[in-house]
């Protein structure tokens, strides 16, 4: 598993993909950060995080679109699948590599907070809460991306597919407020990853939400594993 993880990390940095991801992420988050704090003259960063979720819809697929689709296209998956590596280990290694890239970049973007201290008194607790929420949310999104990537051998299809699912996830929360039917609302709230992080923005570590995010991640990774196991029988 470690071998695949190392290989994935290498690939991010020996191809333009990793650099593109970091650059796009920092550019988007820098812009959104400046826009939501300095421009509106507030040191509260929760607005920044809220906006960034929409950015993730586009940015996260950059990380995950290649992971399995490319292996399948170039037939290198044949090497992985005929080597003594289990399928869960393979999926998890790829997930972990994408998450490392994501978390690393998120932490890198934390330098944006520093200037805030010069202008006001930012609430560190709330910022850390938001940060944790972002990492959990990103983890979910990455799992979705990994899953979609196992379904196709085209990276373009993988990225568009991932964006679509993520969009549904995020938009579900918005529609949720507009719908009267209790049944539809409760179904939507299941998949509404967006609305669950609210407590984090108050600096409260919401165990229930954290468990929810971890479960969603587990479900999609499990689905990815199933796709691979299933494909051997196809």
């Amino acid at each position: 598993m470690l071998a695949i993880y190392k290989k994935e990390m290498r690939t991010y940095f020996t191809t333009p993909l990793g650099y593109v991801f970091i650059a796009v992420f920092l550019a988007v988050s820098g812009f959104v950060f400046a826009f939501s704090t300095f421009q509106t003259q507030t040191s509260d960063v929760s607005g920044y995080f809220q906006l960034m979720i929409f950015g993730y819809i586009v940015i996260i697929p950059l990380l995950t679109m290649r992971s399995f689709a490319e292996e399948r296209r170039t037939r290198t998956e044949q090497l992985l699948m005929t080597s003594p590596v289990t399928i869960p280990a393979m999926v998890f290694a790829k997930f972990l590599a994408a998450f490392t890239m994501f978390a690393g970049t998120v932490l890198l973007s934390c330098v944006y907070y520093l200037p805030l201290f010069g202008y006001g008194e930012p609430n560190v607790g709330r910022a850390v809460g938001c940060l944790i929420a972002m990492l959990l949310l990103g983890m979910c999104f990455i799992a979705v991306g990994i899953f979609v990537s196992t379904l196709t051998e085209s990276t373009v299809t993988a990225s568009i597919g991932t964006m679509t699912i993520l969009l549904v996830f995020v938009v579900a929360a918005i529609f949720n407020n507009l719908i009267d039917s209790y049944v539809i609302r409760s179904v939507l709230s299941w998949i509404s990853v967006y609305s669950r992080y609210v407590n984090f923005t108050y600096g409260i570590f919401d165990i229930a939400a954290a468990v929810y995010y971890v479960s969603i991640t587990a479900v999609f990774l499990f689905l990815a594993i199933r796709v691979y196991e299933r494909r051997r029988y196809a």
Partner: peptide
């Protein structure tokens, strides 16, 4: 396999090292 499973972004040495690890 019929089509050699090569990572074209790696050098030969890196590739064989990876295979060594994964096996």
């Amino acid at each position: 396999p019929e089509q050699p499973p090569l990572y074209i972004d790696m050098t030969v040495q890196e590739y064989l090292n990876f295979v060594y690890d994964i096996k």
